[in-house]
Design a protein around this nucleic acid. Structure first.
Lengths: 147, 147
DNA sequence: ATAGATGCAAATGTTTTGCAGGAAA
DNA sequence: TTTCCTGCAAAACATTTGCATCTAT
């Protein structure tokens, strides 16, 4: 099985919390990890279904919530109102192509510093942020010119 | 009537597009303008309802969409999945208190410049962006210490 | 008179919950 | 054998649509 490390992390989390290790949970984590990230609940459901037809939406959503709690996944909400799950990793933001849906991650130290300054100026305590740039990716810009 | 200027802008837009000037449209715009901005469809509905009890959700949503097209309002989607409407104005971003819901707008030239650089580096064409900082506002931080 | 607007009820799409049966420890 | 999970169906929730009726022009 691929992704042994993450399956191990899940097993540890389940054990620590007196939760059970089930076929469905392993299958959902597997599908999630195989995706390039930024996958929706619906997509996970469809892919798990092709191998385990008895799966329900309920289990997918519940398991993804659990993976988030376990620190393996995190939720992203882009402009279309659908929750997407990505592999949890350090601070980064997103560049989204509104034509083809391509998502690129970026990090910018300068922006982080500017944010801290703004937060401080307003006396807030920063918990998290969200920064998304929407536009057309290089491939779509090329297609536009052809149209 | 307050907000004559915007009511005039709406009237012009309606005329230009062969749409009708109705009591409901004027009432919804009025309520929207009286709010401090960042009001939800539900809130608009409730406030209009107190003066015009026959109003329906449908009309509120349809009218807010129309106001967006007319350039008077714009939609904002924060993390709770509820659409909020704000008075359309130049580029700015949001600082949101997750405890009390307070919303502060900010603008930062340095961040805008950094964004442009990132977009250029990835070959994208930028259409719009969204930048939200979530945390605790000064008042809520004070309350926290009391708790 | 007529194009367009309204409000109700029903549909939508996504995610959550209640519950009875099922599987892991 | 007990505790936790699962999948179904139904609920929730915000928003949209179909349609018969009403209203501004």
């Amino acid at each position: 099985m691929a992704h042994e490390l993450e399956q191990k992390a899940l097993a540890d989390y389940l054990e620590d919390h007196n939760l059970k290790h089930t076929r469905q949970r392993a299958a959902i984590l597997e599908v999630f990890l195989e995706a390039t990230g930024h996958i929706t609940g619906e997509e996970i459901y469809q892919r798990v279904k092709s191998k385990t037809p008895s799966i329900g939406y309920t289990t997918v959503y519940r398991t993804m919530k659990l993976l988030c709690e376990a620190g393996l996944a995190s939720e992203q909400h882009f402009d279309d109102g659908v929750t997407r799950y990505e592999i949890e990793h350090e601070h980064h933001d997103h560049l989204v192509c509104v034509r083809c849906g391509k998502i690129v991650e970026f990090e910018c130290q300068m922006i982080e510093a500017a944010q801290d300054e703004i937060v401080k100026r307003h006396g807030f305590r920063l918990l998290r942020h969200r920064h998304e740039l929407y536009g057309h990716c290089p491939a779509c810009r090329r297609k536009e010119k052809e149209d």
